[in-house]
Simulated assay, not measured.
Amino acid sequence: MKQYNLGIEATLEIIGGKWKALIICLLMTGVKRTSQLERSITGISQKVLIQQLRELESDGLVERKVYEQMPPRVEYSLTPYGVTAIRIVEVMCAWGTENIHMRQQAGEEIELLENESDASRASISY
């Protein structure tokens, strides 16, 4: 039997790590192909991206649809269960943005490249 001391442990087990919340954030705007996700995530290898997508699929947050054509086309989207993670990801995004602004005000040279309209569009897609 698996046991957790706090509920957040179960949350982090599913969407924790360097890439999963970012993948969910990108899928909030709609269906994406593997190549679209790879281009949008600086520093992720195709192998790691696919591994993270498979784990999110296994946990029921992401759906993978394969089109039988040449070359094969694979698309990913959030499942209804995955949509329930949007609130968590939105809070993480808001906290991160606030953190960046606070650090900028303290004189740190740091930049947020996110386009504000993209972020707001992502939060209202589902």
Rank of each mutant, 00 (worst) to 15 (best):
A122T: 03
P71V: 05
Q69F: 00
S40E: 08
L37T: 03
L12A: 12
E55F: 12
Q51T: 11
E57T: 15
G17E: 05
L61R: 05
L56P: 06
P71A: 06
M92T: 07
S125V: 05
R103W: 02
A94K: 15
S123K: 13
E68T: 09
P80T: 05
E57H: 14
Y4P: 03
E111M: 14
M1V: 10
Q3A: 12
V66M: 07
V74D: 01
L56K: 06
I110L: 08
I15V: 15
V74K: 04
P72C: 02
G82S: 06
R33G: 15
Q46F: 01
S35Y: 07
I88P: 01
I100T: 07
T97Y: 03
Q69I: 11
V91L: 15
E114I: 12
R73V: 11
G30M: 07
E68F: 07
R33D: 09
G16D: 03
K65Q: 10
H101C: 06
L27S: 03
G96V: 07
I23Q: 04
S120K: 12
L112R: 15
G7N: 14
A119M: 14
Y76P: 00
C25I: 00
E75I: 01
I8E: 09
R64M: 12
L27W: 09
I50Q: 13
E55G: 04
W19M: 02
P72R: 15
C25R: 13
V91D: 13
M1P: 06
W95P: 00
V83H: 11
M102Y: 08
E38Q: 15
I23K: 04
T84I: 06
K65S: 10
R54W: 05
R121T: 09
M92C: 09
M70S: 12
Q51S: 13
L22F: 02
K32H: 08
C93G: 07
L26N: 09
A21I: 03
G16I: 05
L113F: 13
E9I: 10
S125W: 14
R39N: 08
I41M: 13
S45M: 01
L49A: 08
L27G: 06
